[in-house]
């Protein structure tokens, strides 16, 4: 079987196109694909109240004293977090008791990946469920991860973000 010049030209053209497509894909994956990146603190913090927040039963704690011009929060959480991929649900326990004098917003992170985030949780309320972020659903696999709970405080009157953030380690279990 002999290959004509025309056939050879077609084969070379196809191979060249495949090569170009491969190089282009590699460049896009390495330099341009959106992999989540490092989370950036918003210039304009969450304005709404978290829809999943619930009143903390039996919480009659007195407001904490904080130095003039400062703030005070109580950060209460369990170190285990469960992510249900099929239900798009993150189950956790976070409380912002009445004692706090700041609203807070929380994030559940695995490295740079935001697994879930809340709107403002007002004092006297807590959350036990958050919605799984779409990007996290696409990237997480069944198993266990070491993650972080990030807590950001906001002045309830001015909504200005406090200079002080808090974070803690959590164990995240992913199920289907």
């Amino acid at each position: 079987m002999t290959i004509t010049k025309t056939q050879l030209a077609i084969i070379i053209t196809v191979l060249a196109l495949v090569l170009i497509a491969s190089v282009a894909t590699t460049v896009w994956v390495v330099f341009f694909r959106d992999d989540g990146g490092t989370p950036i603190t918003p210039d304009y913090p969450p304005q709404g109240t978290e829809q999943n927040q619930k009143p903390l039963e039996g919480d009659d704690s007195d407001k904490m004293e904080s130095p003039e011009g400062g703030g005070a929060i109580n950060v209460t959480y369990q170190t285990s977090v469960k992510v249900d991929l099929s239900e798009n649900k993150v189950t956790l326990l976070y409380a912002n008791p009445q004692a706090s004098n700041q609203n807070v917003a929380i994030l559940i992170m695995i490295g740079d990946l935001v697994v879930a985030k809340s709107d403002l949780i007002t004092p006297g309320h807590g959350v036990d469920t958050l919605t799984l972020e779409k990007q996290a659903k696409e990237r997480l696999m069944v198993g266990g991860y070491d993650g972080e709970l990030v807590v950001r405080a906001y002045d309830p009157e001015t909504n200005e973000k406090a200079m002080v953030d808090a974070k803690g380690k959590v164990k995240i279990t992913i199920v289907e």
Binding site: S66, P67, E68, A72, I73, V75, Q78, M163, V164, A166
Partner: peptide
């Protein structure tokens, strides 16, 4: 009993 982290954090005006 599961570990429950509960801390009070109070800060000044930070001026």
């Amino acid at each position: 009993a599961e570990d429950v982290i509960s801390v009070d954090i109070a800060w000044g005006a930070m001026e």
